[in-house]
Design a binder for these strands. Structure first.
Length: 596
DNA sequence: CAGTGAGCGAGCTTCCGCTTGACTT
């Protein structure tokens, strides 16, 4: 007896192969095997059926042949692609290629790659869920229509080679709108006042610093003191004031660890902590996932779980092992009484995989440092710490606020001590001790200095890889496998340029294209377009609606609008001339337009 | 007669999402 099991990733195939033994052949599909053709629309629009024509992707043809050969030799074939919309479609395409009816195909799913989970899944096969496949087809067809009708429109009206799409055009729009906020930004002046205080008898080792916090019982907001004149009045008012502690407030708080990484948060951390681009972070994670020789007898060992995921769930096995690790390394105080789980789902999450975590909690970053290069070590440390911290006790903090009153004014000094490090033991840099000296209620203090400081409000920052991915994810736009490539696409199309600080600045072309799309195709580029699409896809997946009518009701108004704009709108309208500045010689305004 | 240039037509660009190498630079 031989059973062929098909999964999406070759690394996964290798791992599962070990679990299942020699009666099973585990092979991977390398993702999607069929897709719409590249050079034509590949959708029956004239006939009104929207029926797609799929072709085997050229880079997959060799592999598909191999799968066919293996299928011939197998007694049973099990489709074990990911449990999400795309995974279901991959199984459906595979079934088609291997000439198996979807309603007869044996389909299994699992959310964690452990022996137990795989064996359990094999005991409970189902068939291919055609409704879920239809939801994927609707998604695919919609994206093709939008991309392959809107892009040629841009070639005609703006410039050749441009592109538009449900995801990338929104990404570009975000950068354009941010850039305009920056340009329109007018800095505002505001002032703060710091007071330094000393004890009257025995002086403090360091003077006590407190910030002006409230006037006449109303707490001060950031922009309340706008001008130097206001500050001067306050300073004059405080000239011979006496200072007295009127309130001491102690509060103990706890800090819980953040959830384990998913693709988006890993990319954000990689960027924020080490300045890695989204692409770079993913390449490093891929290396750790595929495995590294760490000197043992096992050869290559996969160090982390799958890196393209939107789920914060982790396996029972990890919870047990992490707990044991924490207990052995830090002691009972540092463990959690019951495993900590993170339930909050991100928008549009499909949760086919685990969170990104180390495959073995006992493999500390230090213990394998010798086998990793500098960047791999940094990436692994981020992932390991974040995952282990989730199963450690809360940190406990003591916060103190001291109010020092003089006339109408209250200054506030704050202090913080960490009474129990908990998970922060993994992040020593994050432990802040801000000690206050011994103070008591009604104690009078000497003011040794009043330091007024002028500030100006700052414009919002341009998007980094981290903040752009975050903005897209919050709106449910794009998927774990596309965040990094999307940034690559908008760079390649010259919609954004990377500044020296690695931030993304939109180009003139991006402004022109965004204006064109916002003014004439508002619904497509709307931040909620994807969310609306997802609602429809859910209805299809639940069997409440058929996919073709949904595409049809979208397509006709979209296409008619496109035809209308094609005749109504001239190139000149699209490329509208913009004033860019003033000629220093003549004093006359200078206009810019985009040429061919 | 040879070289030049206008004019015309053909072919190309493009989406999102799932996976890794095989290619260049």
């Amino acid at each position: 007896m031989n059973t062929l099991v098909i999964v999406e990733s070759p690394t996964k195939a290798k791992t599962i192969g070990k679990f299942l033994g020699k009666n099973y052949t585990v092979e991977s599909s390398f993702g999607h095997v069929r897709d719409l053709p590249k050079s034509t629309m590949g959708i029956d629009i004239e006939g009104g059926t929207f029926e797609p024509t799929y072709t085997v992707s050229t880079d997959k043809s060799k592999h598909v042949k191999k799968l066919k050969d293996l299928a011939k030799k197998a007694d049973t074939i099990i489709f074990a692609t990911d449990e999400d919309r795309e995974g279901e479609a991959i199984s459906w395409h595979l079934a088609h290629i291997l000439k198996i009816k979807p309603e007869k195909a044996e389909r299994i799913v699992f959310h964690e790659i452990t022996k137990q989970a795989i064996e359990k899944a094999i005991q409970h096969p189902r068939h291919i869920d055609i409704q879920l496949v239809d939801a994927q087809q609707a998604r695919r067809v919609l994206d093709r229509i939008v991309g392959y009708e809107l892009s040629p429109f841009l070639w005609k009206k703006v410039a050749r080679g441009l592109s538009a799409g449900r995801v990338q055009s929104v990404a570009v729009r975000l950068t354009v709108e941010r850039e305009r906020e920056i340009r329109a930004f007018i800095p505002e002046e505001y002032w703060t006042l710091e007071g330094l205080f000393q004890n009257e008898q025995t002086s403090f080792p360091d003077p006590l610093s407190a910030k002006l916090h409230a006037i006449d019982g109303t707490s001060l907001k950031k922009l309340d003191i706008k001008e130097k004149q206001q500050m001067d009045t306050i300073l004059a008012d405080l000239k011979d004031a006496s200072y007295c502690i009127t309130n001491i407030e102690q509060k103990s708080t706890k800090r819980t660890p953040p959830p384990p990484f998913i693709t988006s948060s890993l990319q954000q951390a990689g960027n924020n902590v080490y300045g890695f681009s989204a692409k770079q972070t993913m390449r490093l994670a891929q290396q750790l996932y595929e495995g590294i020789n760490i000197g043992g007898t096992d050869g290559q060992v996969g160090l982390i779980t799958y890196m393209r995921t939107d789920s914060t769930n982790v396996s029972e096995k990890f919870l047990t092992e992490a707990r044991a690790f924490v207990l052995n390394t830090y002691g009972n105080m540092y463990t959690v009484s019951s495993p900590r789980v993170y339930a909050k789902k991100t928008k549009g999450a499909q949760e086919a995989h685990e969170a990104i975590r180390p495959t073995d909690p006992a493999r500390t970053p230090e213990s394998i440092k010798a086998y990793l290069d500098d960047h791999q070590y940094k990436a692994y440390s981020l992932i390991w710490k974040r995952a282990i911290a989730t199963q450690m006790a809360d940190a406990r903090l003591n916060k103190t606020a001291v109010d020092i009153t003089a006339k109408r004014y209250i200054f506030r000094a704050t202090g913080q001590t960490c009474t129990f490090t908990g998970w922060l033991a993994l992040y020593p840099d994050m432990i802040k001790h801000e000690m206050l000296p011994e103070l008591s209620h009604r104690q009078t203090l000497l003011c040794t200095a009043l330091k007024p400081e002028q500030h100006a409000t700052k414009p919002p920052a341009r998007y980094s890889d981290a903040t752009l991915v975050k903005a897209l994810e919050e709106r449910g736009i794009g998927r774990p496998s596309t965040y990094a490539p999307t940034i690559g696409t908008i760079e390649a199309r010259n919609y954004v340029e990377r500044l020296e600080d690695k931030r993304l600045k939109p180009t003139d072309i991006a402004m022109v294209v965004t204006d064109l799309l916002v003014n004439h195709f508002a619904d497509i580029i709307d931040y909620d377009f994807t969310a609306l699409m997802e609602q429809n896809l859910d209805d299809i997946a639940e069997g409440k609606k058929d996919w073709q009518p949904i595409i049809s009701t979208f397509y006709h108004p979209f296409h008619e609008n496109l035809l209308k704009k094609e005749t109504e709108l001239t190139r000149e309208d699209a490329l509208k001339i913009r004033e860019v500045g003033v000629d220093p010689k003549s004093g006359k305004p200078v206009f810019a337009r985009i040429g061919r």
